[in-house]
């Protein structure tokens, strides 16, 4: 049986791991390589690295970090942040990334998604979507949730699926950093409306939050950052809990 994936996310700035609380107050939580290796040992099923400075700083720093991560860890990882061209994707995959995650560039130019899918296959293409509930509707935002796009989330997810996305990383800006649980309604709606895998992100604060998102929606992965970084919920403890709740989890690692 396919297992539900527990995915720690490492936000990277200047080669270090950070986590924004509602994307504003950024705190330093350590060396990405050390943290990544620790997560692998603890049984993380996949890792996501989001370079939150990538849009304004040199790409080479990120490529070098990706190369080091790829040398050190033996589970899949996704790299996102500032990817604008097929060449950016090629460079990251060559450096050892398994998947890339594209966010605002896909909104600016949706054809980028089909170009990436055609060149490298859909399986390496994650589309990250920041969504916010506003005026009784889930809409798509970019630039760390600061800029509205006017797109309805449920329209955009269908479009990215048609364009060749292999996976959707769905972050609720309302929930992110709150530790009040995942945004179950939109996770359910999105994961039922597309046929590609969906990863829930934003709001994880307890083990039960993971259980409810796996039980009540069709997401196949759940992503969190601060609760793992600061050791609030150790991954082995989370996985053991989920296994007891009869959720398909990889426990033999």
């Amino acid at each position: 049986m396919l297992k539900k994936r527990i995915i720690p996310c490492l936000d990277i700035k200047d080669g270090r791991t950070v986590k924004g609380v509602n994307f504003v107050d950024i705190r330093d939580a350590g060396d990405p390589i050390v943290l990544a290796k620790q997560y692998v040992q603890q049984g993380a099923d996949e890792l996501v690295f989001l370079d939150i400075t990538a849009t304004i700083e040199k790409r080479e720093t990120l490529i070098e970090l990706v190369r080091k991560i790829a040398q050190e860890i033996n589970i899949p990882f996704t790299v996102g942040g500032g990817i604008k061209t097929v060449e950016d994707v090629s460079n990251l995959l060559q450096a050892g990334a398994d998947k890339v995650s594209v966010n605002s560039s896909a909104i600016k130019r949706p054809a980028l998604l089909s170009e990436i899918a055609n060149a490298f296959g859909s399986q390496c293409l994650v589309v990250a979507i920041d969504t916010k509930y506003e005026a009784e509707e889930w809409k798509v935002f970019v630039h760390g949730g600061r800029k509205a796009t006017g797109l309805r989330t449920l329209d955009w997810v269908k479009q990215v699926e048609d364009l060749g996305a292999g996976e959707i990383l769905l972050t609720s800006m309302n929930n992110d950093g709150t530790k009040s649980g995942f945004a179950l309604a939109i996770c359910k709606a999105v994961s039922e409306s597309v046929n590609i895998p969906v990863i829930a992100s934003g709001g994880a604060g307890s083990k039960a939050h993971f259980q409810e998102v796996f039980e009540q929606t069709k997401v196949t992965g759940a992503l969190a950052a601060s609760i793992f970084h600061y050791g609030e919920i150790p991954i082995p403890e989370l996985k053991q809990y989920l296994q007891i709740q009869n959720i398909a989890i990889r426990c033999n690692y």
Binding site: L2, K3, K4, Q123, G166, N195, I196, P197, T220
Partner: peptide, 13 residues
């Protein structure tokens, strides 16, 4: 066939 999520992505036994 699209009876479940495709691609098959993740850990399986």
């Amino acid at each position: 066939p699209p009876k479940d999520k495709v691609p098959h992505m993740g850990w399986n036994n």
